[in-house]
Design a protein around this nucleic acid. Sequence first.
DNA 1: CGCCAAATTATTTTT
DNA 2: TAATTTGGCG
Length: 665
Amino acid sequence: MDLHLKSALNDKQYIGASTIEGPVLIIAGAGSGKTRMITYRIAHMLEQGIPQSHILALTFTNKAAAEMAERVRDLTRAKLPKLTTSTFHAFGVMVLRAEISHLGYDNNFTIYDQADIMALIKNVVRELKIPLEEVDLYELNNLFSSIKTKRSVWTAETSQYREIYDEYLLHLKAYNAVDFDDLIMLPLRLFEEHPAVLEKYRSRFNYIMVDEFQDTSHAQYKMVLLLASEHRNICVVGDDDQSIYSWRGADYENLVNFERDFPEVTEIKLEQNYRSTGNILHAANSLIANNTKRKKKNLWTGTEHGRTIVLHHPEDDEQEAQFICSKIKELSFSHGLTYVDFGVLVRTNSLLSTLEQAFLQEQIPYTVSGGQSFFSRKEIKDVIAYMRLLTNPDDNMNFLRIINTPRRGIGRVSIESLRSYAKSHHLSLFSAVSKLAYDMNAPIRDRLRDTCREFTELIELYKSRLFSKRDMAKTIRNLVGDIDYRDHLISEHPDNERIVQWKMKNIEIFINMFERWEKNPDNLDPNIYEYLNRISLTTKDDNDKETGKVNLMTIHASKGLEFNTVFLAGVEDHIIPHARSIEEDEMNIEEERRLFYVAITRAQQSLYMTSCSQRKVMRELIDTIPSRFIEEIPQELITHEEADAESTPEQAVDFFAKLKAKLAT
DNA sequence: CGCCAAATTATTTTT
DNA sequence: TAATTTGGCG
């Protein structure tokens, strides 16, 4: 390995990459080659003989973590199986898998996602006999999260929900389940209460790096602090202008905290932008200058002004999608771009569906990142629920999900009697069912007992198969066949053959994914617990290589990425800045602005923005007005492009002429 | 006691 | 629009 650090990096990046001992704080503006610097830094460490297993690099998204690892591997041409690059949450899972028994959980714990949590809270509310319409489950979820992570404390207003919260915690523990916040808070507790555990991870990870540091929460920062305070080899990289996760506890003040906790810090500012044209950067700088609470930065570029930013005003969201599709087709011919060069960004997931439909219709290949996860489709969740119950019999939530899916004739009343039986015997629901199946004195009907026996036998059979046989995927495939899941789907969708086909196909895709993972020779320990944990933290099939496709995503999901050409759709007031965000707190306007800033700075060469005059929201058409942020961009940088020229016959002819020419070469 | 069909309600961002 | 909940029927 021969890195040539000095010629590969600029002076500032060089300092960042080569200062591997002691604390380093890097303020890295958008597009300043931050990822490049981090990659070189890790490669450099390896070159200096630091073992890969001693390095810990933390980020916020799986995508960023995977990309970092890949780039280091490319640079070093080594496999690096022991290099830990992961998200905070995945790191938490790793710690918990090894140490959670210190806290009285079993290490086959289940991770509940937000949907699971909502369902659990709903159950608890019902159990406490509180009418459902008296509580807002979504708000309870938020409240509980901020209580757990110590972002807020009980107040006169919220303390009425304390009973629900306590009950919620008891349920989680009893089900041997953890929520996303636990993935940070429990490791933190382990580190604080079990010095031997802390020592173990401290001495293993001698070199720690945190990317997107402005998005760390206090708890996450505390975790890093505990790990690094002794060896002090800690490098954090961030940009306060790109802090877009304050709603889940991110606090860019951690940049200041870091300076306080590591006074001997080496500070570096990366201000040269290598990504965008002068115009795009100028627009971004002007916009973000409107924020009051920020570190002054002077982001500059040596490149040309480039094209102006195009602003288009379609009638409605369908025309907007149409405009984007035809622009993509047009540009891929006239500018020699391919589909991967395009990113289409939106503020909210709901804006994605109209776009998706248009892309399908226009036959433009695309992938959606973020948004509704593949794993949260109903049919997939059902299969996962079976897998979870097989691995963790205490998991009542997943038990409830599948006990009557497919229909086994266990309805509300039967479940109630199972519940009371379980409660009086201090058993989980599944254990209660297995006991009831053979308990002739239990006060239940014969039919219910028969069903219990059948269900117990089914689960026990597959449990033994799953843990004795090599081929876990095949076992799951057989299970899906055994329970006649297809018939279940048919009865759920009586006159919709297509949807049944589609859902069965999804299950097959899921099981194939599992199989590929299980049989991957690079996978050192293919065990089902790892797989289930893994998919709780990801939204996407990571085998799905996004080659040759247009990227559609939310602005949040786009952080850390870049595209030759960016389309920013729905640049309307109430969407960005989002109405609910402003409603919540006037001050949120600054975070919305940062979001807009992140979106703009994803673009390398061209930026298109669209702002509709009307938009379909749910059922009805709503009149909309352009985003106030457009006025914060110097108007000379913007060209207003009028109505859809691509649909004129002349243009069509021209388009096909170009297509022909292209095909001829 | 379970099941079906009509009624209802939900949409900010994510690990 | 689609999934989930509720009320009445078999």
